[in-house]
Design a protein around this nucleic acid. Structure first.
Lengths: 202, 202
DNA sequence: TGTAATCTACATACCAGTCGGTATGGTCGG
DNA sequence: CCGACCATACCGACTGGTATGTAGATTACA
């Protein structure tokens, strides 16, 4: 069980690396195999094909991300607003690495496949929605305390944070550097401070 | 001059349609030719290759978008804050059409090509930056009037609006519908209202 | 000894780009 | 006005390379 899973995991890890760098359509099965140190025979033993791999890679990516965020130290903060702001700060801190290491596989793949590969699109949709949902409880609690009569819903604000993150990645890729993404997250933080009556430092 | 340009324009228009639907790597030259009602001979007469086409398509898209925004009626509003909010509303109004008709060619292409096709990446970067720059004057004036001491720069806020737009498109593709994008633009509008001391309707 | 995992070599299809050729329309000497 | 010439636009069959996926043999292990 461990050996087989290790190979499958190696292929999935390789898929993350390559697809995040070149996109889904431009990555070849051969390249993933080479990057994983395996051959095509092994690949097609574990996956039905490239599309099946993409769906599995989306899940793999989501599990990895979920591990990172749910174990992050800021999760222990007692106040929901603090946790929310710390989430943004945490995302910002991640931007130090290389572009393919901090950008989102789901956003990358869905842009290419939303009309042509429904199964990939649905996988990306689901995992993005799940990550957004993991913010809803904190947002709902923060709203109850600081903006109970506001018209927006916690769900829409959670999705908005994801839109900012995805858009920040697009701009970072365009500018070939993470700085612009950091500034975007700064604006997102300011918005949250304003919504929840934090007298930001101006 | 007109006949030749018409063919080239037909190819560029076709490229916009196809690439916005399937992404850059998945679109084939043959498909663009067919969609334009021309043949490969004509294609390679007008463009050096697929990459050259992508750069030209980025410019073509930017020119088209520039025409839409600079001629939009809201541009005549006297107050810079009003113009800025109306820009967001205008973007929201555009979301009625089909996904490939309102999403951004530049954001789509740059996600795929940022590491592999520097010339395309640079074209996307430039045209996104130019569009953002077209908002800076209004933002700067609004800031001078309503938030002169705020720490953020007009340039960073302009880029932030583009990040939200790009991110909204990514989510719209994931959910296969424009509604979520509209809600994201609603949050963006609220942020601008808060920054410029508009007492939003809550 | 049988099953899952992996390998090598291959088949099949497709795609970017090429190439020789045709059509059109303008220019210029006579 | 005529006809030789030329440049630009366009055509479509072909090529070389590459991609996904297949098949059958081999290994590892239970």
């Amino acid at each position: 069980m461990s050996a087989q899973h290790e190979s499958k995991t190696r292929l999935l890890d390789a898929a993350l690396r390559v697809i995040r760098t070149k996109g889904y359509e431009a990555t070849t099965v051969d390249e993933i195999c080479e990057s994983a140190g395996l051959t095509k025979g092994s690949f097609f033993h574990h996956f039905d094909g490239k599309e099946d791999l993409a769906v599995a890679a989306a899940k793999h990516f989501a599990q990895m991300a979920d591990g990172v965020f749910s174990n992050a130290p800021y999760r222990k903060l007692p106040d929901p607003v603090e946790r929310l702001l710390a989430y943004v700060d945490f995302r910002r801190a991640i931007l130090k690495r290389e572009l393919p290491e901090f950008t989102c596989l789901l956003g990358t793949m869905v842009q290419e496949t939303y009309e042509t590969h429904p199964s990939i699109r649905k996988a990306c949709e689901r995992h993005i929605a799940e990550h957004a949902a993991s913010l809803v409880a904190d947002i709902a609690e923060a709203k109850r305390r600081h903006a109970p009569r506001a018209k927006w819903t916690p769900e829409s604000l959670a999705l908005y944070t994801q839109a900012v993150v995805q858009g920040a990645f697009v701009l970072a890729k365009a500018k070939h550097g993470p700085e612009v993404a950091g500034e975007c997250l700064g604006h997102l933080r300011r918005y949250l401070e304003l919504l929840f009556d934090r007298p930001g430092k101006e």
